[in-house]
Design a protein around this nucleic acid. Structure first.
Lengths: 160, 160
DNA sequence: CTAACTGCAAAACGTTTGCAGGTGT
DNA sequence: ACACCTGCAAACGTTTTGCAGTTAG
């Protein structure tokens, strides 16, 4: 953890950005909530817990900076808010998401499942792929189980 | 075209929604601009050309309604605006997009390239896939050609 | 006839920006 | 020392909402 923080510090310095206490606090929050998909407001509130003097604008500016440096990825699940997701160390590609349409939970897929698809797109559409966003909407494991409790039939795929 | 409009009318009635002139005008605009990815404002301006008395709020309410009925899909390419995209007739799944990071053009892929990936997700993550969003960010055919303008190639088909 | 729908204007929302002052390198 | 950074509040652009009047079914 401290390790990753150090790395990020270096990345900032390399691009000649200063590491202010506010930026450090923000990065710490992101590291502590790597599983979550925090909105700027979420990050703000969490940072505020430890550094109450921080302003929302600073959080926005920091998140923008981190996005620019590809330390975090900015994502949008269709609700009105941008969410910020720490990149995996050394990940070439953005990871995928499984959004449950019933409970709203978000699961991450770190594996790159798109290699073949990207090859097809590059070849057939002549499009030079630099990044991707893939999100599946559906029913998560938990919510499927809940249904099965109500009507304990064999858990077949429900038709839409 | 009239055919598709009729179908949409029926879908509205089936769900006991009224077909007002404003809604019809909005749907017509969407049908006439199927290739584009219009924002609410875009739609509003286009509808206004033929029905100047329409209000922006009505357009928003209509687009929301059409989204709810799965007649259109609401998408977000990361700029601050929602865009609305007519579903293909009988399409089970949402189509994919190629967004050019240089010129901003958006190309559509109607083929479903995700069948295999979805099977993997369902099996390995136990996630019941209902829909997906897949967007590739990269460099389109045209912009690649521009780069190579030193060594002029034969002009390819223009996208968008 | 009346519940559903409309236009308008105001409000709400997330996000950005200008500025005067402060701070890390 | 000085460019970069901050907090605040005001400004922004998009989307939603309250309301009084209108209309499709």
């Amino acid at each position: 953890m401290e390790n990753r923080l150090e790395k990020i510090k270096k990345q900032l310095h390399t691009s000649s950005y200063k590491l202010t206490p506010q930026r450090e606090a923000t990065v710490r929050v992101l590291l502590e909530h790597e599983e979550d998909h925090l909105s700027a407001e979420d990050v703000y509130l969490l940072v505020k817990e430890k550094s109450p003097e921080i302003g929302l604008a600073t959080v926005y500016r920091t998140l923008e900076l981190l996005t620019e440096l590809k330390i975090v990825d900015k994502i949008n699940f269709g609700d009105g808010v941008s969410r910020y997701d720490l990149r995996q160390e050394g990940a070439a590609h953005f990871h995928h998401h499984l959004v449950c349409i019933e409970c709203g939970s978000v699961e991450e897929i770190q594996e790159d499942l798109l290699e073949d698809v990207e090859a097809i797109v590059e070849e057939r559409w002549n499009f030079l792929v630099k990044d991707h966003r893939l999100t599946f909407h559906g029913v998560c494991r938990n919510c499927q189980t809940k249904h099965a409790e109500v009507t304990p039939l064999n858990p077949e795929k429900t038709s839409i």
